[in-house]
Design a protein around this nucleic acid. Structure first.
Length: 273
DNA sequence: CTAGCTGTTAACGA
DNA sequence: GTCGTTAACAGCTA
C-alpha cells in the first residue's frame, strides 16, 4: 500500500529493527527480486547483486534512508542496497518465512505479493546519490514553494498527471495526489499552465503527507494487519458518495491509466477543452 | 465462473 | 517533450 507516508513509516521501522545491528541470516527466497536499477521487470534480475547480498550476512546496518518512495539500507563495507516496494511490497518481522516472503534478513522479511518491488545492489559510497538518482526533491522533506511548483509542474499536461511524475517531485502517489487536490480545490483535470492557486497546493501537499504519516504511526496495527479498515480518505475510492465539504457527489475518471476522484463543485476547472 | 479493478514504474509507439 | 497504453504479477470483488 505504499506511497510516501507508508514508505517513511517503513523506513522508520527498518531503522528500529535493523539499525546498528549485524544483519541476520540472508535468505533469498525469490531470486528474481534482486534487480538492476530498481526495475519492475523480472528480466532485469541481477545474479551478481544476489551474491553481494548473500555475502552481507553479519555486516552492521548503519541506517535506513528514504527519498520519495525509495528506500536505502546502508551497511558497513562496500555493499549497500536500495529497495522499492512497488504496489504491494512491505517489510515484516516474522519468525518464519511469510507467504510471499521474497528475501529474509534475519527475521525481517521483504514481502511482496505482486513482485513489482525489488532490491538493488549499490556501492556504499554512491548510496545517497543512487537513492536520489532521477528523482525530484522529496515531497515531504524538501517541500517546494508556490513559484517552484509552478516551475516544475508546467505545460499542457493535467496537474494530477504531473504530480505523479517522480522526476519532478518524488513521493506523490495516486491517493495523495487526489487528496491534496481536493483540499486545495483544484480539479485534477486542470492543465498545469491554467492552475492558479499554487500557494494552496504548496501549503496542502506537505500537510496532507504528514497527516497520512501520522495516521499510520498512530494506527500501526491497522496498517500492518491486512484487516479491513474504513476508507480514511476524503475523495479517494468514494465515487458517488457525497463530498464531505459540500455534499456534491464525488466523480471518478481515469487519467493516464489511473483512477482519479474529485468533487466537481469544490474542484471546478477554470478552462474548457 | 469471468471480468475488471488495484496504492508503481519503465518501456513502448504515435 | 508528451500522450496514452502495455507489461511486469497476484489477489480481490462485483
Amino acid at each position: 500500500m505504499p506511497e510516501l507516508p507508508e514508505v517513511e513509516a517503513c523506513r522508520a521501522q527498518l531503522q528500529r529493527w535493523l539499525g546498528g545491528s549485524p544483519l541476520g541470516a540472508v535468505r533469498i527466497v525469490d531470486e528474481q527480486v534482486v534487480r538492476h536499477g530498481l526495475s519492475t521487470l523480472p528480466s532485469k534480475t541481477d545474479p551478481a547483486g544476489r551474491t553481494r547480498l548473500q555475502a552481507c550476512e553479519g555486516r552492521t546496518v548503519v541506517g535506513a534512508h528514504r527519498h520519495g518512495k525509495r528506500l536505502a539500507l546502508e551497511l558497513t563495507g562496500a555493499d549497500s542496497f536500495l529497495a522499492h516496494l512497488g504496489m504491494t511490497g512491505k517489510w515484516a518481522r516474522r519468525p518464519e518465512l511469510p507467504k510471499h516472503g521474497r528475501v529474509g534478513l534475519g527475521d525481517v522479511w521483504f514481502v511482496d505479493t505482486r513482485r513489482f518491488g525489488c532490491l538493488t545492489w549499490v556501492s556504499t559510497p554512491l548510496l545517497q546519490q543512487e537513492l536520489r538518482r532521477g528523482l525530484g526533491p522529496d515531497a515531504l522533506t524538501e517541500p517546494l514553494g508556490p513559484t517552484e511548483m509552478a516551475g516544475v509542474w508546467r505545460g499542457r499536461r493535467a496537474i494530477k498527471v504531473a504530480m505523479l511524475d517522480q522526476t519532478r517531485v518524488a513521493g506523490i502517489g495516486n491517493i495523495q495526489a487526489s487528496e491534496t487536490l481536493w483540499r486545495a480545490g483544484v480539479s485534477p483535470l486542470e492543465r498545469c499552465d491554467d492552475v492558479k492557486p499554487w500557494s494552496r497546493i504548496a501549503a496542502e501537499l506537505p500537510v496532507q503527507l504528514a497527516r497520512t504519516l501520522a495516521a499510520i504511526d498512530r494506527d500501526e496495527v491497522a496498517y500492518m494487519s491486512d484487516g479491513d479498515v474504513p476508507n480514511p480518505f476524503e475523495v479517494y475510492g468514494r465515487e458517488g458518495e457525497d463530498c464531505r465539504r459540500c455534499g456534491t457527489p464525488i466523480v471518478r475518471a481515469v487519467q493516464a491509466g489511473r483512477a482519479t476522484f474529485w468533487c466537481p463543485a469544490c474542484q471546478p476547472r477554470h478552462t474548457s477543452a
